[in-house]
Design a protein around this nucleic acid. Structure first.
Length: 459
RNA sequence: GUGGUUGUAGCUCAGCUGGUUAGAGCGCUUGAUUGUGGUUCAAGAGGUCGCCGGUUCGAAACCGGUCUUCCACCCCA
């Protein structure tokens, strides 16, 4: 080993225990995706650059990993461009492929390409890694998994309602109590901007408003002023900071506030329908709350906006989000297809479950039974027993070499094995095996003819 | 992309305003214990102090660069 190996910034190796815990989350999420009628698809890990570039704004373009062309990629670049050192124009000449940046845009591409085979409404889920050339932070990586579920081809609000229930089902199953599903509606934000006379500054207005819980009311006002909102407009925003009461009461206030805005009223109406219906049907462990300051992903969301907050006792931002985008496939030439979708932030959910100790206790156990190896003859007998145990679905193994017992026992202990089986000379003679319970330290002898008794004791 | 922060044994970390041979706990190996782990005791192995360069008689420590970690911003899952 000449040099210590390393992995790129923002990437990770996963240990066996981590993979098992991640799979636990994946399996639960998948199970509920399926019971809600979503179908899985997969798309390539890299796409043509023009599929991705320009879809996420300037900031997004910068964060897309570009793949260098194969072969002598510089020979095709003319001298003038090369010597101009203009990275942006040069990039398109030497790189025609890029790593997937999210799952939504490739999905839109997929829908357009397969529009004639798809039965709409199409409910799909997709769990694959994506890559971003971002600067890493805690819970933020350059390679991470996204779990998305989207519906395209239906503008029914029933979809939004289903997504709230889907979030509730998944987090309930994960035993993660007290998640807060926050909802807003782009139309409400547009309506507010309209009413305060700042339509043109919608994005600036919402970006500032979104920071309320971080920088407080005064901070938001200050930022709005910096972003060009008039003092008059900011004064009109005031009532938003003091919205109180139940979801429906807040919606009632918004209705009054937005009565002069057609768009805004539509948004209030939509949210009211969703809130009423969810209230009627009930949620298992999550709570649904209206949050007019919620303003993420505004570049393409046109209706509902979702964000899921971790339970209050953990300091973790959002663990999921999503929204409705009325014309997602439009960028690829297919008009009038409405879509709505949500995403689960796997890495953060993992951190939250870890912090709250919510992974099942037995999850780490990769081996239930280990047979100590006493030599060739003995190990063959052990292997026969192990075969029977494996057929019964028990995770069992024989230690591969007849090293000292102390070493074998220690290995069993470190692997968190619950039972160690001893088949030595004495046991061979009497056609039996000794089972040591590693947590209690007790031992029990079984006949090799009645392995079923031992199997029964395991369940 | 901007500003800051971190890096010393497999892991978690000490190491003073530059000074001789770089430490601890845990883990690991061996023995006490040739058929019994998790407890105990004894002994042992393991480090080009992230990497490259500079200052100095002398650098783990100071300076510059670079990589990495984490944090804030931007943005976002």
């Amino acid at each position: 080993m000449a040099k210590k190996p390393s992995i790129p910034k923002g990437t990770r190796d996963f240990t066996p225990s981590e993979v098992i815990k991640r799979n636990y989350i994946f399996d639960i999420v998948k199970k509920h995706f399926q019971t809600f009628g979503f179908q899985p698809i997969e798309t390539p890990s890299f796409e043509n650059s023009d599929t991705l570039m320009g879809k996420y704004g300037d900031e997004g373009d910068r964060l897309i990993f570009k793949i260098l062309n194969s072969g002598d990629y510089l020979s095709k670049v003319d001298e003038a461009l090369y010597s101009s050192k203009d990275s942006n124009s040069l990039t398109s000449k030497i790189s025609e492929k890029a790593l997937r940046y999210d799952l939504t845009v490739p999905f839109a591409r997929y829908v357009v390409m397969h529009q004639n085979e798809i039965d709409f409404p199409f409910k799909r889920y997709q769990i694959q890694p994506v890559w971003r050339a971002d600067r890493p932070q805690k819970g933020r990586f350059r390679e991470f998994y996204q779990c998305d579920a989207d519906v395209v081809g239906s503008d029914s609000l029933l979809q939004e309602i289903e997504f709230v229930q889907l979030y509730d089902a998944v987090f309930t199953d994960l035993k993660l109590d007290g998640v807060n599903i926050k909802m807003n509606n782009r139309k409400i934000l547009s309506g507010i901007a309209e009413v305060i006379g700042a339509q043109d500054l919608l994005i600036d207005f919402t970006v500032a408003l979104d920071k309320l819980d971080k920088i407080g009311e005064d901070g938001v006002k200050k930022e709005m002023a910096e972003r060009g909102l008039t003092a008059e407009a900011i004064a009109k925003v005031e009532p938003l900071f003091s919205l109180s009461g139940s979801n429906l009461e807040q919606l009632e206030s918004l209705k009054e506030l937005l009565k002069d805005s057609e768009t805004g009223s539509k948004g209030v109406e939509e949210l009211t329908f969703i809130v009423r219906t969810i209230q009627e049907m009930g949620l298992q462990s999550a709570k649904l709350s209206i949050d007019v300051t919620l303003a993420r992903g505004l570049n393409y969301y046109t209706g509902a906006i979702f964000e899921v907050g971790a339970p209050e006792e953990v300091k973790m931002g959002s663990i999921g989000g999503g929204g409705r985008y009325d014309d997602l496939t439009g960028i690829f030439g297919l008009k009038n297809v409405s879509g709505v979708g949500i995403s689960f932030g796997l890495d953060r959910i993992y951190l939250v479950l870890e912090e709250l100790n919510l992974f099942p206790e037995a999850i780490d156990q990769s081996l239930q039974v280990l047979c100590v190896n006493f030599g060739e003859k003995e190990s063959i007998a052990a292997l026969k027993l192990v075969n029977e145990l494996r057929k019964a679905g028990i995770k069992a193994d024989v230690y591969p070499s007849s090293t000292k017992m102390q070493k074998q026992m220690k290995y069993a202990n470190n692997r968190n094995v619950s039972y160690v089986v001893l088949i030595g000379e004495q046991e061979l003679e009497s056609n039996s095996f000794v089972v040591k319970n590693m947590t209690e330290g007790s031992q029990k002898e079984y006949s090799l003819h009645t392995v079923a008794d031992f199997v029964a004791s395991l369940s």
